[in-house]
Nucleic acid binder design. Sequence first.
DNA 1: AGTTGGATGGTCT
DNA 2: GACCATCCAACTG
Length: 200
Amino acid sequence: MRDDDTGRRVGRIVEVEAYIGADDRASHARFGRTARTAPMFGPPGHAYVYLVYGMYDCLNIVTEPDGRPAAILVRAVEPLEGVETMRAARAALHAARRRARPASANGTRIAPRPLPDHRLASGPGLVAAAFGIDTGWTGTDLCRPGSPLRLEAAPPGESAPDVRSTPRIGIAYAGSPWTERPWRLVIAGHRSASGPATLR
DNA sequence: AGTTGGATGGTCT
DNA sequence: GACCATCCAACTG
C-alpha cells in the first residue's frame, strides 16, 4: 500500500517474478554490483525501482540477506482502495503516450474503451504508474510500519490463493535454462494479472 | 483474438 | 552504440 498525503492506495499483489543470484542470466545482477543494481544486494525488505524502456518504472522487493543479489518484481496488483487516485496517476502516463503517437492516417481516433478498475495495475509498469512510484523510491523500507510505501499481511482469515508458476516474461535474452525457470508466480486465473485475457 | 511496430532514455560493453 | 524484467495503438483476419 501507499499511505501518504498523495492519497491512500491499497492493492493485493497477484503476480510476481523472482530474480535470484548473480548467475541468473535474466537478472540485472548478472553484471555484478553496479550503481544501478547495488540495492539488489541488500538489505532485504527494501525497494529496488528501475526504469525500463525509457518510460516505465518497475517496483522490486529485495529478498535475500545483505550481500546476495535477489529481488521480486511486482508484476500485477489488484486495486482495493484509492482507485480514483490510481486512475489519476495513470492518466499522466496515458497522455504522454498519446502525444508520442501521431493520429492514424485518416485523422480519426477511436475513443479507447474505459479501463476497468481491476486492470489499473495489471503489469509491472502499470503498478508503478498507479502507485506513483519512480526510481526515487529505491531504498524505501517496505516492511516498516508507517512507511509511505509498505507491504501488509493479507487480512486474517483470508483463504490461501491458488498460486501457479510459469516461466518469466520478457527475458528471452537470458537463454536456457534461465528462460524456462518457473519463477513467475500468479494467482491462477486472476483478472488483475498481466497480459491478454487468454493467457491468464 | 492475435500480431506488429514504435516511443524513449538509462545502463552497460 | 546496442539493448532493454513494457505498453498500447493500429493493424489483420
